[in-house]
Structures are given as structure tokens and as C-alpha cells.
């Protein structure tokens, strides 16, 4: 995989980006509050890299992905595509950028019109963006279907005639049709059979190399994120709590939440089942009324008074962490009094 160049202009940049959803109540549908799905996220995505975005349900990772593509209206903050600000561009002015920034979804079945053939589905974005005439678009669609590993005959078949893995291939071919530079992959393998997931991960890797693609790879499964990512960002309650090169993040997580997330993931080795498992206490607080200071303080085993009062900024350069008392050392040793709780019965 080519080393992404950090000196290059970021392909995509978000500056203090927030996406809020209004909570409406009562007869008059008055807005009584906001769900702060994404709350002040700053990040950069460089050409050629895969930025993994992980976090548990409700952390805002999918909303962030959609907001970065302007599929959701941001509440505040700015979005830049290759240095150009696009936050408030009208749909018409946004059009030339749209082709460069595409998305693939978890459930390809839900995102594919069942009445259209695979060929028509892949040709559709070309026609919608007026990049090709009908004949040309269908010809290109055939080539794209072949590129994603589907047999030639599949162009005339309908979505229900394909397996889940094949439908995800159609979804990928659709995204590729408009020759994007960046693709947001939102849980692209989560709905697939385990034995098929690797095929799709391979396809994404091969396409990245062949077509110089950049990915934002959103997933809750840490295995796939570890496998495919160059860098990884960890989200909690609408904010990024840690972002670093994959190796640094997995080998020496600095945020207590990251450490717990890694620790709680099942390991495919029965000889390690006796290990101490450390998990955050209680439930994730509501995103409409996030805790003061550090949002993780209500569940953090090493929270101090400062964590309640003061929100930590995401700092630290290449391995940035939003924590007043970041952890040091490796994931295996006890540090900073992080209490190990034996939850695993032997």
C-alpha cells in the first residue's frame, strides 16, 4: 500500500464539525433539545489512506460519515474537500464534488432499487451526473461489474438474484462508477457471512491500490478496522477521543475508553479466555445531555475532579488523545491505577 503523504493537502478536512438532531415534543412540535450526534469533530483524511472510524452504537460514527459527505446538514463547523470549503454550497454547486466523494452502505439490499438490473443500477450514477449517455453508461457498467468480481452475465439480473456478498459488490461498483477519490464505507461487511467478509475486504484493498482510492472505514468490529486501516479514530458520544496510526493505537491506547474497547473484544484464542476483562460501568449517557467535562468521566475508572470540570482537547500530534490523564505503556500492564476488574470466571 502506498504511504499516504501527510504533507499533501488533505483530501477531506473537518473543522469543529457538529451535527445535531432536534428533539421535538408536544402538539406544536416545538424543539425542546438536541441530540448531539456529532459534536465538534476536527479531522483530516489524506490521499491514499484508510481512516478507520470505530465506536459503539450511538457514538456518532455513521452520522459523521454522512455529514462529511454532506448527506446530513451540519449544525456548525466547516468541511473542506481538497482545500475548498463546501460546508454551505448549494446542491448545484456541490455537484462537481459529489462524484469525488462516494459512500457504500452496510445493507446493500436496502440501498439497491429491486426493479433495476445490476447493469442499470451501476449505470444510474453515470446518467444522474450526466457523465455518459445511456449506451456508454451501460457499457461502463459492464466493465465495473467485472472489476468488482461479478460474472459478465450479472448485468441483466436483479438484486434479489444475488447473494449478500455479491450485492455489496454491486454497491461498490455503483460508488466506483463516478470515479471517486474518497469513499465512506459504512459498516460494509457487518451484515455479511463471516466467510464472505474477507472477500469484500480484499476487494476494497485491491481497488484502493488500483484506483488510488482513499477510504473512511466505519465499523464497530475492531478486527476488520485493524485489518484495513492506516489510521484509526475512536469516537465516544459524538467526539473523537483518540486518533493515531493503527499500530500505535492498538499497541498502546492512551484513552481509557480505547483501552477498554480493545480489552472487551473477544479474542479468537481459547487460551487467553482467563484474561482480566475491563469494561466501562453502566450505560452510555444520553447524547442530548452529555456529561460535563470529559464525556467519559461518568464511566471512567480513573476519573479525577478535573475530568468533571474541564473538557479535554484532542492533542498530541500523530497520536492524539482527548484525556487529561492519558495512559502510558502497553495494553497489558497496569498503569495509572486503572483498576482491573476480574469479570471473567474461570
Amino acid at each position: 500500500m502506498p504511504e499516504p503523504s501527510r504533507e499533501a493537502t488533505p483530501l477531506l478536512r473537518a473543522d469543529q464539525l457538529s451535527t445535531y438532531y432536534p428533539i421535538r415534543r408536544g402538539v406544536w412540535n416545538r424543539t425542546t433539545g438536541y441530540i448531539r450526534a456529532v459534536d465538534g469533530v476536527t479531522l483530516e483524511v489524506y490521499p491514499g489512506e484508510t481512516l478507520g472510524l470505530v465506536g459503539e452504537s450511538g457514538c456518532g460514527k455513521s452520522t459523521l460519515g454522512r455529514t462529511l459527505l454532506r448527506l446530513e446538514e451540519p449544525h456548525a463547523g466547516r468541511i473542506y474537500y481538497e482545500g475548498d470549503e463546501v460546508t454551505t454550497l448549494t446542491e448545484r454547486r456541490l455537484r462537481p464534488y459529489r462524484t469525488h466523494y462516494q459512500m457504500i452502505f452496510q445493507d446493500p439490499y436496502a440501498s439497491l432499487n429491486p426493479r433495476m438490473t445490476a447493469g442499470e443500477l451501476v449505470a444510474e450514477p453515470l446518467l444522474a451526473h450526466r457523465l455518459a449517455g445511456k449506451g456508454e453508461a451501460l457499457r461502463l457498467a459492464h466493465r465495473l461489474l467485472e472489476l468488482v468480481g461479478l460474472p459478465r452475465a450479472s448485468a441483466g439480473r436483479y438484486p434479489h438474484q444475488f447473494s449478500g456478498g455479491q450485492r455489496q459488490r454491486i454497491g461498490i461498483a455503483r460508488a466506483l462508477a463516478v470515479t471517486p477519490k474518497l469513499i465512506v464505507c459504512d459498516e460494509p461487511v457487518s451484515a455479511l457471512d463471516v466467510s464472505v467478509q474477507a472477500q469484500i475486504l480484499h476487494l476494497l484493498q485491491d481497488l484502493q491500490r488500483e484506483l488510488d482510492l482513499t477510504y473512511i472505514f466505519i465499523a464497530h468490529g475492531l478486527g476488520a478496522v485493524h485489518y484495513i486501516s492506516t489510521r484509526v479514530a475512536v469516537m465516544y458520544l459524538g467526539t473523537i477521543v483518540e486518533i493515531a496510526d493503527k499500530r500505535a493505537l492498538f499497541a498502546s491506547p492512551k484513552h481509557p475508553y480505547t483501552r477498554m474497547l480493545l480489552n472487551a473484544s473477544p479474542v479468537s484464542d481459547p487460551r487467553r479466555r482467563g484474561r482480566a476483562i475491563l469494561v466501562p460501568e453502566g450505560d452510555v449517557p444520553s447524547a442530548s445531555n452529555p456529561p460535563s467535562g470529559c464525556r467519559f468521566h461518568t464511566r471512567c475508572p480513573i476519573a479525577m475532579p478535573r475530568c468533571v470540570a474541564e473538557e479535554p482537547a484532542l492533542t498530541g500530534g500523530a497520536h492524539a488523545v482527548a484525556c487529561h490523564y492519558p495512559l502510558g505503556g502497553t495494553g497489558e500492564e497496569e498503569t495509572h491505577g486503572l483498576v482491573r476488574r476480574e469479570t471473567a470466571a474461570r
Binding site: E56, H220, L222, M260, L261, N263, A264, S265, P266, I277, V279, P280, T343, A344, A345
Partner: peptide
Amino acid sequence: VTVQAQILA
């Protein structure tokens, strides 16, 4: 995953 770990325990 963090809830999964609790339920498995």
C-alpha cells in the same frame, strides 16, 4: 463489545 463482554461474563 463492552456490553457483550458483560453478558458473556
